[in-house]
Deep mutational scan, measured.
Amino acid sequence: MTYKLILNGKTLKGETTTEAVDAATAEKVFKQYANDNGVDGEWTYDDATKAFTVTE
């Protein structure tokens, strides 16, 4: 299944996707991606759209 990450960081904005077996796996991938790019903020998840959002 495809999951999307929407980044609303102070220095990094954009979107990326990942293929994962479930939302928990996608969340781990996205949190590592955000951490690697220096984005740390409030996380939300919308199951209807399979989209995670992180806002700094």
Rank of each mutant, 00 (worst) to 15 (best):
1 M>L: 13
1 M>D: 14
1 M>E: 13
1 M>C: 14
1 M>H: 15
1 M>K: 13
1 M>P: 12
1 M>W: 13
2 T>A: 06
2 T>N: 07
2 T>S: 07
2 T>F: 09
2 T>C: 13
2 T>K: 12
2 T>Y: 10
2 T>H: 08
2 T>W: 12
2 T>P: 05
3 Y>C: 04
3 Y>D: 04
3 Y>H: 04
3 Y>W: 06
3 Y>A: 03
3 Y>S: 03
3 Y>Q: 03
4 K>Q: 06
4 K>N: 04
4 K>C: 06
4 K>T: 14
4 K>I: 13
4 K>E: 04
5 L>I: 03
5 L>K: 01
5 L>H: 01
5 L>R: 00
5 L>A: 02
5 L>W: 02
6 I>K: 05
6 I>A: 03
6 I>T: 04
6 I>W: 05
6 I>Y: 12
6 I>D: 03
6 I>Q: 04
6 I>E: 04
6 I>N: 04
7 L>Q: 02
7 L>R: 01
7 L>S: 03
7 L>D: 01
7 L>M: 12
7 L>Y: 10
8 N>A: 08
8 N>S: 08
8 N>F: 10
8 N>E: 08
8 N>R: 10
8 N>T: 08
9 G>F: 14
9 G>A: 08
9 G>Y: 06
9 G>T: 15
9 G>D: 03
10 K>E: 09
10 K>M: 13
10 K>L: 15
10 K>D: 07
10 K>Y: 11
10 K>N: 11
11 T>A: 09
11 T>K: 11
11 T>N: 13
11 T>V: 11
11 T>H: 14
11 T>D: 11
11 T>E: 10
11 T>Q: 10
12 L>C: 15
12 L>E: 06
12 L>T: 10
12 L>W: 14
12 L>H: 11
13 K>S: 10
13 K>E: 06
13 K>T: 10
13 K>C: 14
13 K>I: 10
13 K>W: 11
13 K>V: 10
13 K>Y: 11
13 K>P: 05
14 G>S: 12
14 G>K: 12
14 G>F: 14
14 G>W: 15
14 G>N: 08
14 G>D: 08
15 E>L: 12
15 E>A: 08
15 E>N: 06
15 E>P: 03
15 E>Q: 11
15 E>F: 13
15 E>W: 14
15 E>C: 15
16 T>E: 06
16 T>I: 15
16 T>F: 15
17 T>Q: 09
17 T>V: 08
17 T>H: 10
17 T>E: 09
17 T>S: 11
17 T>F: 14
18 T>R: 05
18 T>Y: 12
18 T>M: 11
18 T>K: 04
18 T>F: 11
18 T>S: 05
19 E>V: 15
19 E>G: 05
19 E>Q: 14
19 E>Y: 15
19 E>K: 13
19 E>N: 13
19 E>S: 10
19 E>F: 15
20 A>E: 04
20 A>M: 02
20 A>C: 08
20 A>K: 02
20 A>Y: 02
21 V>A: 12
21 V>P: 15
21 V>C: 13
21 V>S: 11
21 V>M: 12
22 D>F: 03
22 D>Y: 03
22 D>E: 04
22 D>G: 04
23 A>P: 09
23 A>T: 07
23 A>K: 13
23 A>N: 05
23 A>I: 10
23 A>Q: 11
24 A>Y: 10
24 A>K: 11
24 A>T: 09
24 A>S: 09
25 T>N: 07
25 T>Y: 07
25 T>I: 07
25 T>S: 12
25 T>C: 08
25 T>P: 01
25 T>M: 11
25 T>K: 05
25 T>G: 08
25 T>R: 05
26 A>K: 00
26 A>Q: 00
26 A>H: 00
26 A>W: 01
27 E>D: 04
27 E>Q: 10
27 E>N: 05
27 E>C: 14
27 E>I: 07
27 E>L: 15
27 E>K: 09
28 K>S: 10
28 K>R: 13
28 K>P: 02
28 K>G: 07
28 K>Q: 11
28 K>E: 09
29 V>D: 04
29 V>C: 08
29 V>N: 06
29 V>I: 15
29 V>K: 09
29 V>E: 07
29 V>L: 12
29 V>R: 10
30 F>V: 01
30 F>L: 05
30 F>C: 00
30 F>I: 00
30 F>P: 00
30 F>G: 01
31 K>M: 08
31 K>F: 05
31 K>L: 08
31 K>N: 04
31 K>D: 02
31 K>H: 08
31 K>A: 05
31 K>T: 05
31 K>I: 07
32 Q>S: 08
32 Q>Y: 05
32 Q>A: 11
32 Q>E: 09
32 Q>T: 07
32 Q>N: 08
32 Q>K: 14
32 Q>M: 09
33 Y>M: 05
33 Y>R: 03
33 Y>C: 06
33 Y>P: 01
33 Y>G: 00
33 Y>V: 05
33 Y>Q: 02
33 Y>N: 02
33 Y>F: 12
33 Y>A: 03
34 A>E: 00
34 A>T: 07
34 A>R: 00
34 A>K: 01
34 A>H: 01
34 A>S: 04
35 N>C: 14
35 N>S: 14
35 N>V: 14
35 N>H: 15
35 N>L: 15
35 N>E: 14
35 N>Q: 15
36 D>A: 12
36 D>V: 09
36 D>R: 09
36 D>S: 09
36 D>M: 11
37 N>C: 14
37 N>T: 07
37 N>H: 15
37 N>Q: 13
37 N>G: 05
37 N>Y: 13
37 N>W: 15
38 G>N: 10
38 G>L: 06
38 G>Q: 07
38 G>V: 03
38 G>F: 06
39 V>Q: 03
39 V>T: 03
39 V>Y: 08
40 D>C: 14
40 D>P: 04
40 D>H: 14
40 D>N: 13
40 D>V: 15
40 D>I: 14
41 G>M: 02
41 G>F: 03
41 G>I: 02
41 G>E: 01
41 G>K: 01
41 G>S: 01
42 E>S: 10
42 E>N: 09
42 E>P: 04
42 E>V: 14
42 E>G: 05
42 E>A: 10
42 E>D: 12
42 E>R: 09
42 E>Y: 12
43 W>V: 02
43 W>Q: 00
43 W>Y: 02
43 W>S: 00
44 T>D: 08
44 T>W: 07
44 T>V: 10
44 T>H: 10
44 T>S: 13
44 T>P: 00
45 Y>K: 01
45 Y>E: 00
45 Y>N: 00
45 Y>F: 07
45 Y>S: 01
45 Y>Q: 01
45 Y>V: 01
46 D>Q: 04
46 D>F: 03
46 D>Y: 04
46 D>A: 04
46 D>K: 03
47 D>K: 08
47 D>N: 09
47 D>G: 08
47 D>V: 10
47 D>Y: 08
48 A>D: 11
48 A>L: 12
49 T>H: 09
49 T>P: 02
49 T>R: 10
49 T>D: 08
49 T>E: 11
49 T>K: 10
50 K>M: 11
50 K>W: 05
50 K>E: 02
50 K>S: 05
50 K>L: 11
50 K>H: 12
50 K>T: 03
51 A>C: 15
51 A>G: 04
51 A>V: 15
51 A>Q: 14
51 A>T: 15
51 A>W: 05
51 A>D: 03
52 F>E: 00
52 F>T: 01
52 F>K: 01
52 F>N: 00
53 T>V: 06
53 T>F: 07
53 T>D: 02
53 T>N: 04
53 T>I: 08
53 T>Y: 10
53 T>S: 06
54 V>Q: 01
54 V>M: 05
54 V>I: 10
54 V>H: 01
54 V>G: 01
55 T>L: 06
55 T>E: 06
55 T>V: 08
55 T>G: 04
55 T>P: 01
55 T>M: 06
56 E>Y: 10
56 E>P: 06
56 E>D: 09
56 E>I: 10
56 E>R: 04
56 E>S: 07
56 E>F: 11
56 E>Q: 10
